[in-house]
Design a binder for these strands. Structure first.
Lengths: 112, 112
DNA sequence: GCCTCTCACTTTCATTATGCAAGTGACAAA
DNA sequence: TTTGTCACTTGCATAATGAAAGTGAGAGGC
């Protein structure tokens, strides 16, 4: 019955996907996960310097959408590591394609 | 000499690419271009109802980055059509991958 | 026990971006 | 002359972003 949890912009899969990762930070987190980063503090260390509140909100959104999974490695104090789910791995392929595209087509990056 | 026009977030190609299309609208315009849409008014008709000022700013950014090209089909009054450049076509492949990912992994879209 | 430190966030708040609506300029048609 | 269309631009209220400080749950040293 409940097909949609909230009013969507459209029924287009591209729009739906962008509602999950259509911003300047989310795919950078996926990139870091592909690099093997697992913990909150590690994501903060990346060169782009994501603000802590943004990181927290994006991790939450990725988890809610089933793209990543939060796994506790300590109960007391609560400490967690983040992993890509299967759909997250598939999103990883897109991130790799974005990497290739950016290396070839972004002016400020082409000139290595 | 002038390697970067402005301070970038990092030298990562993914970050550079997201500075061009990392938002909730830009890839929808590319999607529409893939569908054969060419004119301003056509982009406005899409189901997501992009605001006119956002559309104008995104078209400008895509043109500046060399992803699309604006071609006048009338001088007086000035009327234009937009086309994907070569790098835009390559970005189109990513949009198609996003479509496939979204259809498979976005809850509000899966249930068709 | 007490103090300091780390990790993983949360909160605050000024700044920026978004998005709705109305306005503008250049014509074409009636 | 009036109306209409296309492609934007402008104004403004609201929402998102981002810098920085704060919080809570312990761990480790003395």
């Amino acid at each position: 019955m409940k097909t949609k949890e909230k009013t969507c912009r459209s029924d287009c899969p591209v729009a739906g996907a962008l509602d999950i990762f259509g911003d300047r930070w989310t795919l950078l987190i996926v990139r870091d996960l592909l690099k093997g980063k697992r913990r909150y503090g590690e994501f903060l260390e990346s060169g782009e310097k994501i603000p802590t509140n943004i990181l927290a909100s994006r991790l939450k959104r990725l988890e809610t959408s089933g793209t990543i999974k939060k796994v506790l490695y300590s109960e007391h104090p609560p400490r967690a590591e983040y992993y890509l789910t299967e759909s997250g791995q598939e999103l990883g392929k897109i991130v790799k394609a974005v990497f290739v595209w950016g290396r070839k087509n972004v002016a400020s990056v082409k000139s290595t």
